[in-house]
Design a protein around this nucleic acid. Sequence first.
RNA 1: GCAGGCGUAGCUCAGAUGGUUAGAGCGCUAGAUUGUGGAUCUAGAGGUCCCCCGUUCGAUCCGGGGCGCCUGUACCA
Length: 507
Amino acid sequence: MAKQEKTFRPKARVPKGLRDVAAPNVRAEARMIARIREVYERYGFDPLETSALEYADALGKFLPDEDRPNEGVFSFQDDDEQWLALRYDLTAPLARYVAEHYDGLPKPFRRYQTGPVWRNEKPGPGRFRQFTQFDADTVGAPSVAADAEMCMMGADCLEALGLQRGQYRLRVNNRKVLDGLLEEIGLGTDAEDRTHMTVLRSIDKFDKLGRRGVELLLGAGRKDESGDFTKGAGLAPEQISRVLDYVESGLNEASADRGAVLEGWRNVVGNSAIGREGIDELAEMDALFTAAGYGPDRIEFNSWIVRGLGYYTGPVFEADLLFDVKDEDGNLVRFGSVGSGGRYDGLIERFKGVKVPATGFSVGVSRLQAALEALGRVEKDVVAPPVVVLTLDASNMAGYQGMVGELRNAGIRAEMYLGGSGMRAQMKYADRRGAPVAVIEGEDERARGIVTLKDLILGSEVSREITDNAEWRQSAAAQIEVERSKLVEGVCEILARHGLHSGHHGR
RNA sequence: GCAGGCGUAGCUCAGAUGGUUAGAGCGCUAGAUUGUGGAUCUAGAGGUCCCCCGUUCGAUCCGGGGCGCCUGUACCA
């Protein structure tokens, strides 16, 4: 069978893990970003924008995990054969920026930045290969006061976005505490050590897998639902129980008393110098939280917060939502954290050779928006749909343009129909756009010096009671005629009837 | 990445043992009903039956490989 020749047609599809964002969500995200910006500005941070592309070596690799070296970053070669990469977060570009302009910057340097970042990895529900982050960082501040401020600011952001106290929590831990724990159970202090990393990652899963799951991961390993096996850390039973003791030590107190949590941790890791240092730092942060009025209902100390193993060196924190979210099929959706951060004292050192202490917090804008949407916290689109001026007479486009101009000058969102179809299609268009008013001027109206204004909102209510077509069409429901010169007043009146904003009329 | 499941129209899905022209509902585009959204009727557009290779006279269907989607897991800078 001879194959028919066919013209090549590219398949219209968005690449995996990427997505198109429609008007209501674009606007919702813009509002969200504006609110976060207000909070960051209030804390004294200044904006900075860096480019989406960086030299790949400037981004560096923060995956000591040899399972997947070099993955996660979109990169390509420039004309000069140097490797460029899309930024995968906003912190690495900040480190590059600070290193590049170090001498000219005030220290501490405090900046915020938002924008899309890209990660070349497997997408999942609420997890995309491009998403928006909103970062704030303080560079050159060694004190944990800077970290404490990040946590409080994170809480402020979530509340500014409409989350109630109790619907979220900032969970704070300190890498030094975890290092102390590992030292205490005899694992040494080599952060690159494989067992070391496996143990930390196991602890991180307490929230998801519970005590039993973590126990398996610390020991021989765990089999998941699909039957796939995850190799464990291979700790001895004695070591496992000490880790679990630590993880559970603050559990009951967590929502009640930060000081009690720290005391519990002291019993577990108190013999290690690094562990003690970590706990002391957290005690200092606790004092600042308390002085500023941030109780444990907003910020808690949490034993299983670990965060990524790449570069955090001190306090780490994460903003978690405490309510369940279900998808369309009624399945529970795990959103993960909607914000995170921590201290990364080694990052700028990569460029400068000198240690520059830094800490930061990042809101996961895309993910948080998805969560707020699920919670019904996203306000309806605040931009009113436009009034549509029908173009019934192709020889009178100038006249229609004039009407649209008058409406726009009066501050009313308006457009004329620009398609090529007939009146019925034009009405359908206006309907689909959600237009509150259709302005109709055919030959009849023009001859009489009037325009017909159709109240589409009222019309839609009326239509529900009419089943007969002739009646429906002849009723000319919800239409009024006004003199051509009274177009703007007439439209304003209908808008006002529905409580719609009609621009700056009266001016 | 690993494990399992699944790929037929924009969406939800039928379908034949391997046989000519692959269907439905919804949606979409138009027409009819005086120049009007809904309703009704009519017509039209839209498919490489995920892709490649193999077996076969013949593959959307069988076999192998790949890609994509879903779930779990891993990772999450």
